[in-house]
């Protein structure tokens, strides 16, 4: 087993630790547990980044060097990284451990799925010609940062329907965090779609081919555009907004997983 697999395994265990620290916090309600959570989260992202970097270096040692953003396994690992990254970016705006707990659980799930599922190829594969482009980095990074922001929005949307005094933050706070994560996610998703279009122009000869992934990312984009219009123009708040964010995330899930497994298209190398 290569060293980067071990390091990423450690990162997965750290996500589990983050989860247990949250449980500890909710049972003890000690500030110390809260700072332990954040210290562990910072440590986790360092280890996680190290794992990605080592995988990157390993690919160069194998003489097929490329950034680890090229296949389904690598995208899962990067998705988990992006969620943690987004938590750190939004740290000041989300001082509610229940949100960090749910988001870290999402990271844990992604890491676990990536390392356990027999259908995921974990080896470093050479880059097929279509992927050999500098647009790969910017396209994948923008898309997954957007997905990560939508994870936080989804968590807020779900928590809206959970009544648990002292654990779940007030509803208007959830609503506000939900909006804040969507205004990060939406421009990022836009950038992801646009960089993808520019890349497609150079690689496939057309900036838009109605490939299933393209179509579904557009559907996702429209749902979050509706979210913003509902909130900013029609003044929708709280419950209905929470519902749209849940629907939006279902669409994200379908764009990311569903399209790969159910529909075939130009993006098939991502499976």
């Amino acid at each position: 087993m290569a060293i980067h697999h071990k390091i990423l395994g450690v990162a997965t265990l750290l996500y589990l630790l983050v989860f247990f620290l949250h449980i500890l916090y909710f049972s003890l309600k000690k500030e110390k547990a809260l700072s332990a959570i954040w210290i562990t989260l910072y440590g986790t992202i360092c280890i996680h980044t190290l794992g990605l970097v080592l995988r990157w270096i390993e690919s160069y040692r194998m003489d097929i060097g490329h950034v680890p953003l090229a296949n389904f396994y690598e995208s899962l690992i990067f998705f988990a990284w992006s969620v943690t990254f987004m938590l750190i970016v939004m740290r000041k705006k989300i001082p509610y451990p229940v949100i960090t707990m749910c988001a870290s659980l999402a990271s844990l799930f992604l890491m676990g799925y990536a390392s356990i599922s027999p259908s995921v190829d974990r080896s470093i594969q050479p880059l097929i010609p279509a992927l050999q482009s500098n647009w790969l980095h910017i396209h994948v990074i923008t898309c997954f940062v957007a997905y990560a922001a939508f994870v936080i929005s989804f968590v807020c949307g779900l928590l809206y329907f959970v009544e648990w005094k002292g654990v779940v933050p007030p509803k208007e706070v959830l609503d506000n965090i939900n909006y804040r994560s969507v205004i990060i996610g939406f421009p990022m998703l836009s950038a992801g779609i646009l960089t993808g279009a520019v890349w497609a122009h150079y690689a496939w000869g057309s900036y838009w081919s109605w490939d299933p992934k393209e179509t579904w990312s557009l559907i996702t984009w429209i749902i979050y555009a509706l979210f913003l219009h509902a909130r900013l123009v029609s003044g929708w708040r709280e419950k209905r907004i929470a519902l749209i964010s849940i629907i939006g995330f279902m669409s994200v899930i379908f764009t990311y997983f569903g399209v790969n497994f159910i529909l075939s298209g130009l993006h098939t190398y991502a499976t």
């Binding site: 010609p129 050999q132 150079y202 496939w204 000869g205």
Partner: peptide, 17 residues
């Protein structure tokens, strides 16, 4: 002409497909 490196001439682009 390579994949990702098309040739453009007089408004027509040729892509390795």
């Amino acid at each position: 002409i390579r994949v990702n490196e098309p040739l453009s001439y007089k408004g027509i682009r040729f892509y390795q497909s």
